[in-house]
Amino acid sequence: MSGAWLILETSGRSRVGVAVGGAVIAAEDLPAGRQQNRHLLPTVERLIRECGLTPRSLTHIAVGVGPGSYTGLRVGLTAAKTLAYALGCSLVAVPTFAAVAADVPGTVDVIGDALQGTIYVQRFTDGTAMSELRIERFDEWVAQFTPPPLRGRSASEASREGGELSVAGPGVVTFADKLPVHVTRSPVVEPSVEAVFRVARTLPPLTVEEMMRLEPLYLRGSSAEEKAKAATSSSLPS
């Protein structure tokens, strides 16, 4: 699956890349902050041009679908979906944590801030997902690192299964002060354009219907819906 690829990853810091002949030939990180939403498409257009291509010559678009910043992801997905729709090219949805894990050997928990004391977390071994992506309380997740003999089973199981468990992803920075000192922190925080591209090449492109309806990996409703859900469930007889 070669061709000309545009790669977008906007779950945190926005990144844009172009790959031709199976290799990334240009990549750029946008300056951090709200302005990156504004500059995403001009950057895409310039990078394509600098690679000697036109939008029409794109055959595939790969986009990181989170989890991460809701607004950032919506901008990235809107851009990717609309370009794919208007150019008639294939769209590949890349889970952001899979792209993080693609650069981390061994067993790793990829974590990201899910706010209000919770994290997004998913375990990978050598890039292969070993668990579903889920939201968990940070306190409960971090308890597995309690040193022996008190420690929980997950970390010890992981070490029995294939070496030490490390931690990667944007949560490593967010929770830097709360991670126990003995935990191995991977330097891979956000996915590289190369990693997004590598994972994208292993995934099937979306159908037109899937492309039209593609959404970020939110994993939960808006806070208004979550509050309403909590209020309903607490008012039900137990």
Partner: peptide, 19 residues
């Protein structure tokens, strides 16, 4: 702003794609 961003981003993508 979050709602406007979806339309603005899509419009910019259409303009780029269609030239």
């Amino acid at each position: 702003v979050g709602a406007l961003l979806v339309g603005v981003t899509a419009a910019k993508a259409l303009a780029v794609a269609l030239g």
